[in-house]
Amino acid sequence: MDAATRVKHLTDGYGTLEGAPLLAAMHEVFGGRIALLSSFGAESAVLLALAAEATPDFPVLFVNTGKLFGETLRYRDQLVKRLGLTDVREIGPTADDLAAGDKDGMLFRRDYDACCHLRKTVPLDRALAAAGLEAWVTGRKRFQSTTRAALPLFEAEGDRVKVNPLANWDKNRLEEEFTRRDLPRHPLEADGFLSIGCYTCTERVAPGADPRSGRWAGSAKTECGIHTTMIGTAR
């Protein structure tokens, strides 16, 4: 069954689920051949908590680009311990990748897209293939930006399925879940960083602005390249 057909079947069979029940169902449907991709950013704790509730050994992929805030790495360690996650896999560019594509570590100044491809997309593609994964979970939500406004619960991307359990959640619901579960916040959020990626390409967000406006500020770039399915269709 190809990914597009599988998406239709999943939508028909599980389209009314969300959160932990959906994650538990997907873990079973895919026989464990599914992983959650997390940046351990400003809103990540909720999805990680739901995954831990579904099953503590839900695989989590964490892309360490080598350009992340130290606060993000410490927050990752805090959440993993707090939630009891037992299968967090750190991935990232290899020394050979960097020697070939970003020898001086300054590629981000020359080409945002090339840097994201080298440090995020390539490691993720490699990890998905190596683990034989048939599906992966994202924390994207429709309210986050105009490019995500039409985000579906399930997407086909190549021969894999992407699952977006929080697609329909709004900011208020996220905040309620943070409070209900007493989840710790990313330490940079209080300082105005509402969408947190690499320190080289992340800025504070102005009050009332698009939460992702601090990413690659001043450029037309809105996505790192990992999530491209909805770009152009959701504007």
Rank of each mutant, 00 (worst) to 15 (best):
R148V: 03
L151F: 09
C224K: 03
L118Q: 10
G41E: 15
T72S: 13
A24F: 10
T55V: 11
D104L: 12
F154D: 02
L22H: 07
D182G: 08
K171T: 14
L22Y: 09
A25Q: 06
L61V: 04
T146Y: 14
A131H: 15
I226Q: 05
A25C: 11
S195M: 07
T65N: 05
R140K: 14
I91A: 10
G232K: 09
F69S: 05
A51P: 00
W136F: 15
A49N: 10
P187M: 08
K81A: 15
A95S: 11
G158N: 02
T16E: 15
Y14P: 02
K141G: 00
Q144T: 12
E53K: 11
N168Q: 15
D191I: 03
D170V: 02
L37F: 06
A217R: 12
E43C: 01
G132V: 04
R235S: 13
P184F: 08
G13A: 13
R82T: 11
G92T: 04
G232V: 04
V29G: 00
S219R: 12
V161I: 10
R33L: 09
D113H: 02
I196L: 09
F178H: 04
N168F: 09
A156T: 11
R119P: 08
L118E: 08
R140Q: 15
Y14R: 11
G218N: 13
E18F: 12
Y75V: 09
L98Q: 10
P207C: 02
D77C: 06
E155F: 04
T147C: 13
A129Y: 06
A234Y: 01
P21Q: 13
H227R: 04
K162A: 06
P184Y: 08
T55W: 07
T229W: 07
L151P: 12
V161H: 08
S38H: 01
E43L: 03
T146K: 06
P207D: 09
F143I: 05
H117M: 14
A3L: 04
